[in-house]
Every structure is written in structure tokens, then in C-alpha cells.
């Protein structure tokens, strides 16, 4: 391990000259041990703290809730019903990109459930509102919104455009971070703009991830008016109808 080299450089030795001692301590075991300890600490630590997402549920008293719902205009209200495809064991199915197969059924305005020709299927709504459609969480593709994000983006266009203006100023360092946040909040809650009211519902088999992703979309699209609600019979009927129509 540690050795004392007394050869002193080889060559001739002068008489009477003090012997030079080179001390070599072998540090290899020390390094080994340190590496082990580092590995231990690296594996046991959490470098990145997990994040949190704030949620506020409506209170259990339903009255205020329904009032708000009925007040919203057809063009403003959008209801999203989340569901996840699951295999026989109840695990979510995974698509080619490694994401869960989440489906979002959505309708704008009030649900349309009339069946005038009595064929057991819901008719086309005259104004296009209230008809169930399906979408997916696709995120952005080359900076362009895809899937449900595109729909939500279009719904909240006015606010998003204004916020983008502010964002530009902030990027150019013309306004500070706080100023930008305050402005963005102001725009989000500006009642003079057409802003959507989003109601998020989830079927029993919807995954937790799909719910969080939906809430995320609210943040990304700067939507300030949204709430999580429970499914009702109309919603279930709409989905059954949608599946029946698309099976053909």
C-alpha cells in the first residue's frame, strides 16, 4: 500500500548527502470507497423536488355551480369528458409514443340529445353545439397546437393573443417578471374578452394522468374558468351514442 521509496532517483550517491525519501501512498482503496459512497448518495437523493399543481374543487353545495353553468353562453361553455382505454387487467393501453391512450370527448354549449327520427341515435344539432366529438392530448407539433389543445386555444384566442403580446415585452426585458405575471392574471380574468368556461369530467376508468393533463391544458391555454365536475346520465348517454355511431 503505502511505500517509502529510498532509492532517491538512482544514479550515483554522494557521500554524506541526506537520503531523499519519496513517500507514495496508494490512494486507490480510498478512491474506491469514495466512489461507493458517491454512488450511495446519488441513488438515495432526490435532486429534483416534485412539483405540485393547485386544484380547487367546487364546494359540495351544487346550486352556485349549476347557475354558473347555465349562465355561460353556448359559444363559451365546453365540457370535456376524459376516459382512458384499458386492457383486460385494467392497465392503461399505451400507444406507439409511449403515452397512455387517453380520449377526450367534448361538446360545446349544452348537450344536445334530441332524437326526432326515432332511430335510437342522437340527431345532428342544428347549430353544431352540444354534439359530442372526440379528441386526444397531442401537445404541440413544431410549435403548432394539436388535438384538444388546438380547440382550447381557439376558444381562448383573445386572451392568449394579449398574453403573447405581454410575453414578447417580457422576453425583450421591457417588463419585469412580476409585471408580466400581474398583467397575465389581469388578462386571464378580463370579463370583456370571450373566455371559455371549461367543465372537466372523468369516467371511472379515466387515469389520474389524464385528469392532470387536462388541468395542465387549462394552464397552458391560460383558461381561468374551469372546474372539475361529476359525470351525469346525459354525459354517459352521449358517450354511448357516440360509440354506437362510430362503430358503423
Amino acid at each position: 500500500m503505502a511505500q517509502i521509496d529510498t532509492s532517491g532517483g538512482g544514479g550515483k550517491k554522494k557521500k554524506g548527502a541526506q537520503k531523499k525519501m519519496a513517500i507514495h501512498v496508494d490512494f486507490t482503496p480510498m478512491v474506491d470507497m469514495n466512489m461507493l459512497l458517491i454512488t450511495f448518495f446519488m441513488l438515495c437523493t432526490t435532486m429534483i423536488k416534485s412539483q405540485t399543481l393547485n386544484i380547487s374543487l367546487p364546494s359540495n353545495e351544487k346550486i352556485e355551480n349549476e347557475e354558473q353553468q347555465s349562465k355561460a353562453k353556448n359559444s363559451e361553455a365546453i365540457t370535456m369528458i376524459l376516459t382512458t382505454e384499458r386492457d383486460k387487467d385494467g392497465n392503461p393501453k399505451i400507444d406507439e409514443t409511449g403515452h397512455q391512450k387517453n380520449i377526450i370527448y367534448y361538446y360545446e354549449g349544452k348537450p344536445f340529445v334530441e332524437d326526432a327520427n326515432k332511430d335510437g341515435l342522437i340527431d345532428e344539432s342544428p347549430d353544431g353545439y352540444g354534439i359530442l366529438r372526440s379528441e386526444k392530448f397531442l401537445g404541440n407539433d413544431n410549435g403548432v397546437e394539436q388535438g384538444i389543445r388546438k380547440i382550447l386555444h381557439n376558444k381562448n384566442k383573445e386572451a392568449l393573443e394579449k398574453i403573447d403580446e405581454q410575453k414578447k415585452l417580457w422576453r425583450e426585458k421591457k417588463i419585469t417578471d412580476e409585471e408580466f405575471q400581474a398583467k397575465a392574471r389581469e388578462i386571464r380574468n378580463d370579463s370583456t374578452l370571450t373566455r371559455p368556461v371549461v367543465i372537466i369530467k372523468a369516467t371511472p376508468e379515466a387515469s389520474w394522468e389524464s385528469v392532470i393533463t387536462a388541468l395542465d391544458e387549462m394552464q397552458i391555454n391560460q383558461i381561468s374558468r374551469y372546474q372539475i365536475d361529476n359525470m351525469n346520465q346525459v354525459d354517459s348517454a352521449l358517450i354511448t351514442d357516440y360509440i354506437a355511431k362510430n362503430r358503423k
Binding site: S50, Q51, T52, L53, N54, I55, S56, L57, P58, S59, N60, L82, T84, R86, G90, N91, P92, Q100, A202, T203, P204, E205, A206, S207, W208, E209, S210, V211, I212, N230
Partner: peptide, 27 residues
């Protein structure tokens, strides 16, 4: 992330019942 909403809804419902309407979820 894979837990179904029905399971979590049970917990959220309980929180709602005792007026803990606002909370955070870990992500």
C-alpha cells in the same frame, strides 16, 4: 398516473365533504 379516476375520486370526494376544496396534487 395509471390509477383510475374512480379510486381517486373517492378521496377527493371525502376532502370535499369536509370542505377541503382546495388542495394540491403532486406532479
Amino acid at each position: 398516473r395509471n390509477t383510475n379516476y374512480e379510486t381517486i375520486h373517492g378521496v377527493l370526494d371525502n376532502l370535499q365533504t369536509i370542505k377541503m376544496n382546495r388542495f394540491t396534487v403532486m406532479t
